[in-house]
Each structure stands twice: as C-alpha cells, then as structure tokens.
Design a protein around this nucleic acid. Structure first.
Lengths: 239, 239
DNA sequence: GGAACTAATAGTCTCTACGACTATAAAGAG
DNA sequence: CTCTTTATAGTCGTAGAGACTATTAGTTCC
C-alpha cells in the first residue's frame, strides 16, 4: 500500500472545524454558528469550512478563525490541531473528513453575522447542548484536551489579556477544570515556576472591583510546567 | 462557511500513515517500507495507504497495520491518532491529506514482503534517517508524542508482551527517553501506582539471562499515572 | 467617617513522594 | 568458590503540594 498506484483513490471533501473557547464573566464560552440550511438547519454548530485548493488545514483554520470572530489580528492567538474526524456517515450528503482545531482567546467581542445568513455567537460551554453533525463530540474532546494541557503547559495565559492578575489566571484553571483552587497555593506554584509569568514593572490594578488591588503580570517565555500543576482529587482512572 | 453550500469544495485524496514502534534488543525500531515507484522510489517510507470509500481513518489504519505487520490479530494493539498533515505540497503528484497514527507493539516478527513489490522491515529508530515525503517529520512527532505519553499514562505496557518483568518495563522508558533510570526508584514508583501492573500469581522468570530471576507482571487496569512519572533533568523549556 | 466586606498577599506546618544512596539475595560464568 | 550480574529491600534528605492562619489594602454600606 505504499505507492499511490494508478491513482486508485477515492476523493473526499476536507474541512476544518473550530472549537473556539474563551472566558466571559468567569464562564467558559464557545463560538457557535447557527446553521442556515439542511441538514441540521437551525441548529448550532462549530464554525468551519472547506480547505481551499492550496491551503493547509492550519492555514484554513486561521482564516476561518479570523472570519468567524471578526478579529482583525488573529496571528497571535493560540490555535492547535485537535484531531481528525473521519467517520463515513458524519455528513448525510457526502463523505467529509474534518480536521478539528482548538483555539483559545481572551474575552472577545460578540462576532458579527458572518459572511452568510447564519448568525455566530458566544454561548456558554454546555456539554449537554445538542450540536449539528458530530460537533458535540468534537467540543467535548476539545474541552478534555484543553483541561489536560493546563496541567503541564503554560496554555492558561492564552485565555488572558496581555496583562492579567494571578486571580484571573486562577479563574482560567477553575473555570476550565470546574474545581476551586486554594489561592495562596496557586500563587506560590505559579510564581515558583520560572518564566511562567513575569511582573509588569510599574502599576497595580486599582479600581477594577472590590478588595485589595492585584499586581499585574504578563505571560513569560516558558511553554511547559515542570513539575506540572495537577488537577486535584482524581483518584483512580480518568481518560 | 458553516454550510457546505452548493458543494463548493475541492476533492482531496485522504490517506493514513503509520508510525509503528517496537522494542527489539533494547532498541527502538520502526516499521518502514521501501518505495517501489516514483516519487521517492527506493527510499524508506512509513507504511500507509488510501482510505476505502466507507472506512474511517481508524479503521483504515488498523487494516494497514494488519497488512503491513502480517500479524493475524491486531485488535489488541495500541493504535492512536497522532495528527493530520495537510501541506499542499506533501506529494508532488496530487493533493494528499494524511492522517497519521502511532502504533505500539511488543517485539514482533520480521514482516513479510507485503502485498506489492516493495519490502517492509523493522529498522532502528534514527531521527537522521531520510524518509520519503514528510515522513521524517511524522516519525519525529510520533516519537515525541510517545515519549510524552509515557510520563502520564500507562502506555509503556503496550511495548511489552502479556507478561513482563519490571526490568523490561524500565527498558521501555529508558529506550524511548534515551536516559538511564534508577532501578529501585523506578520499581518503587511503578508498584506504588495502583493498578499500573499486577503480579502474575505463580512463577518467576528463571533462565532468561544472568542475574537473579525477576518476578513477572501483567498490565493492570489503570490507564493514567497520578502523579506522573516525569522524565529526569529537563530544566527549562522542552517542546 | 467608621464598620463590614472582599480580595490579594505573606507565611506556617505537615506529609507525600522523589532522588540518591547502601545493602542483600539469587542466579550464571569462569 | 568466587566474580559478575540483575532483582529486590530499605534508608535518608529534601522539594513541593495541601491545608491552613494572618495581614494588607482597597471597596461598599450605613
């Protein structure tokens, strides 16, 4: 099977699907679009689309991300391939192989209506929300993957604006994992990890809300956490 | 872009590529095939092939795995999607999107010549070995992924036969990571992790080689390691 | 203006678990 | 029998995580 002998292959449609996650008001939100046509007309779906003839999946994903979020500069955002979904009956009309991506954003403005009729909106992440095609599964996989990556990478800063407080960073962990963390311990751990975050020279946030103003930090140069920051209380066998 | 409007899509060829890894004589080996035709005729490549019309990538990968290894029962082997490679110039003849998989085997017999002219062989893993297409990159990604997964999953047993000694299990880690581990500490860690391995009731391996005979273990029911078994000495920032 | 509240930050104590060891046991090779 | 090799047992010191308490510096409410 190593030669593509005599062009003996079946043509497939190839798409990208995006699980775009963000934090709004301490809740995990997902970018969803409402389908305007059959199948699954009127249902929510992950944004996505076909690869252009000379595009890689990564390029197509970033293009879709820009189109769907309406953000002018999407180049710094975290975008990562999740996995590929290739079941033969994913789409009732034809054979579609879809490369799924996960994108993480700091809180973003409401997307505009997109190019076509269907609307795009930020909706709270809810594993029970029915989605078109196998997008429920893709979204669940994305959530699981991101949750796992928080443990041993510095990914959490991708949810934060350029300057953030340690409380905001902790909110990322608590929201994605759905658990409460001890504030002093979290702080100690983050500051003990070299180059995870670095303090912003002057300034301490003032009138943001109640309580003592917090110091501001920027994302550091580290990409991995050694040792990792493990989720609490997972006795036994997770996925 | 959420509707597949008017079938406005480009057809692609979709293939699977397999990075099949095993341990032979305490060395990491890869299953490679020699290409019989252009392009890259005579060069080594990862085994793989086209998806059949109603196959998922996973199904195709397991079929290819059975064909290329010549093993009769391939159902219990560890097979996992790695990622998808979709650069527009991967194959000089046409647009090919390839879903790559990683497979882990206990030491396996030399594969037979396969269905077509090209030969298939186990060769020592060597990141510097030139491969056809972008297979060098795929293989490097597979190695990196497997190395990382050893840290927080029970994947290492996938390289071992049904019954194995702790020394063999330690060899998996040392070979894949390319580092030496302390034997008593490794043993303590593995046995302290619930359900990572379980002792085989009777029996202790006898005349295998020199030294005191080792007890035999089987893979347990656990799939994840909490806390993880981290690679030593990675100060700073790995991938 | 003070009291109550809220969140950030500092610091303590304990215990687990890992790294670095030393020691012993059980086989084969010579 | 001795040497070598590998498996297994156990010890000691320390980094780091969990569970706390305490203090500080702002808001909000009366």
């Amino acid at each position: 099977m190593q030669g593509y002998d005599k062009y003996a292959f079946e043509p497939f449609a190839v798409t990208v699907d995006l699980a775009v996650l963000t934090l709004r008001a301490d809740t995990l939100h997902v970018l969803l679009v409402e389908r305007g046509q059959e199948p699954y007309a009127g249902q929510w779906a992950l944004p996505g689309g076909f690869l252009l003839p000379r595009e890689s999946a990564e390029t197509a994903a970033r293009r879709e991300l820009a189109e769907e979020t309406g953000l002018s500069d999407v180049s710094g955002l975290h975008l990562e391939q999740l996995r590929t979904y290739s079941g033969p009956d994913r789409d009732p009309r034809m054979r579609v192989v879809s490369v799924a991506f996960t994108a993480l954003l700091p809180d973003a403005p409401e997307p505009h209506g997109g190019g076509d009729a269907a609307q795009a909106r930020w909706l709270p992440y809810d594993p029970a929300r029915p989605l078109a095609f196998d997008h429920e599964r893709i979204l669940a996989d994305a959530h699981e993957r991101v949750g796992g990556q928080l443990e041993y990478s510095c990914l959490a800063t991708a949810f934060c604006p350029p300057e953030f407080t340690l409380g905001e960073l902790q909110n990322v962990y608590e929201t994605v994992w759905g658990v409460a963390l001890d504030r002093p311990n979290f702080r100690r751990k983050v500051l003990a990890t070299p180059d995870f975050v670095e303090p912003v020279p002057g300034a301490a946030r003032l009138t943001g809300g109640r309580g003592k103003p917090a110091a501001l930090y920027r994302a550091g140069t580290a990409t991995a956490l050694h040792p990792p920051l493990l989720r609490p209380s997972r006795e036994g066998r997770p996925a």
